[in-house]
Computed example of a mutant assay.
Amino acid sequence: MLGAPVGDRDDDARGSPVAAPSSPRELVLACADLLHRGDVDGARRVVDVLLSGADPRGDAADRLAHHFARALARRIDDKGVDAPAGAAPTPSPSPSAYLAYNQIAPFLRFAHLTANQAILDAAANSVARRVHIVDLDVAHGVQWPPLLQAIADSADPAVGPPEVRITGAGPNRDVLLRTGDRLRAFASSLNLPFRFHPLLLPCTAQLADDPTTVLELHPGETLAVNCVLFLHKLGCEGELATFLKWVKSMNPTVVTIAEREASIGGDYTEELPRRVAAAKDYYSAVFDALEATVPPGSADRLAVEHEVLGKEINAALAPGRTGEHVRGFEAWAAAARGAGLSPQPLSAFAVSQARLLLRLHYPSEGYVAEEVRGACFLGWQTRPLMSVSSWQ
């Protein structure tokens, strides 16, 4: 564990050591405070202590400290300046890490399952024979095979299943094309009429000018806009409000929103120590959950922490326009209402499905799923970690 002394901001040029915090958490917060006060040299010394002492293969506290140290080191190296507006986005996790995350942690499957049920409920209550899903972050498309299977299984044999079309958005054309190929092959195996349209982002200007043309919206279809782990990638409050108003302008049958339950702002006007403390609070619970439910030394867990959670921590601590804006459910709900969307409480079946998912695939007394304020929350012990809600 950590305990080496580090210099504070008043050290002279020789860097004489003084008494310093000893726990990984204290060192991370001390580094954030030094950076906030402009003591880059002092912050770099603390980061060096963290990186030399926090074992990335150790216990949850050490592994978490290691990833926070890497994120802070990256911020120091970038000199805390805003990234240009056209800067490349953070690379997506590899398919293997993404699938491993799905297997060892319930967050993605919980979000996908609960959002899918809201879409199925909306389609069941519609007379339309076409279902169009606009997925703003389709990635590898793992959310959609269960939904396609459910639509095929519930179809009336006399008329057959409805046509399903997915507009899948993302920043990588090759990934989108491979995702479309996999989904088309799966739908074909079900004899389900299916189309996939790749939408390369960013294309904000074109979408704002004429979303009907770009998205091929048609009257008489059940339109679902899927925002699973997407809204936090938008910039300031104004960009979020503009996006949600654009969604509302399409008159969707259902809008699904799934986000992490945290308050981690990416705005450079928010003090870095506060952002780091909020991120530490959230990711401490995530790392504790993985520590309690995944076997020691798991290669999958290390890959997930490096390629998924580590990148999330980098994004949460990044300065300026590169930072993410993770809010709690109340903030997302207020933004949705402000855009004219109305809450649609999730069905009791959706909540019971979420609980069954935890019991069958992530058996631990620590994970909890419950319905609160019309949304479904996933938590670890008493700490909410994710919410899923439905809007119209």
Score class of each variant (00 low, 15 high):
Gly3Arg: 11
Asp10Glu: 11
Asp11Met: 10
Asp12Val: 11
Ala13Gly: 11
Ala13Glu: 12
Arg14Trp: 13
Gly15Leu: 14
Pro24Phe: 07
Pro24Ile: 04
Leu34Cys: 06
Arg37Asp: 14
Ala43Trp: 03
Arg44Cys: 08
Val46His: 09
Leu51Gln: 05
Ser52Leu: 12
Asp55Pro: 03
Asp59Phe: 02
His66Ser: 10
Leu72Arg: 13
Leu72Ile: 15
Arg74Val: 04
Ile76Lys: 04
Ala83Lys: 04
Ala87Gln: 06
Ala88Leu: 12
Pro89Tyr: 00
Pro95Leu: 01
Ile104Trp: 09
Leu108Lys: 13
Ala111Pro: 03
Leu113Arg: 11
Ile119Asn: 06
Leu120Arg: 14
Val131Ile: 15
Ile133Cys: 03
Pro146Lys: 14
Ser154Phe: 08
Ala155Tyr: 11
Ala155Met: 13
Val159His: 15
Pro161Val: 03
Pro161Phe: 11
Pro162Phe: 00
Pro162Ile: 05
Ile166Gln: 03
Ala169Asn: 02
Pro171Leu: 02
Val175Gly: 06
Val175His: 14
Asp181Glu: 13
Ser188Gly: 09
Phe196Lys: 08
Leu199Tyr: 03
Thr204His: 13
Leu207Gly: 06
Thr212His: 09
Val214Ser: 01
His218Asp: 13
His218Phe: 10
Pro219Leu: 10
Pro219His: 11
Asn226Gly: 01
Asn226Ile: 02
Val228Gly: 01
Leu229Arg: 13
Leu229Ala: 15
Phe230Asp: 03
Leu234Ser: 04
Ala241Asn: 15
Phe243Arg: 07
Lys245Glu: 10
Lys245Trp: 01
Thr253Gln: 14
Thr256Gly: 08
Ile257Cys: 15
Ala258Glu: 07
Glu259Pro: 06
Leu272Arg: 09
Ala279Ile: 02
Ala285Ile: 01
Val294Asn: 08
Pro295Ser: 08
Pro296Glu: 07
Gly297Arg: 12
His306Ile: 03
Leu309Ser: 13
Lys311Glu: 09
Ala318Asp: 04
Pro319Ile: 02
Gly320Ser: 00
His325Leu: 11
Ala331His: 05
Ala333Phe: 00
Ala334Met: 01
Ala334Leu: 01
Gly340Arg: 10
Ala350Thr: 06
Val372Asp: 07
Val372Gln: 08
Phe377Pro: 05
Leu385Gly: 08
Leu385Glu: 13
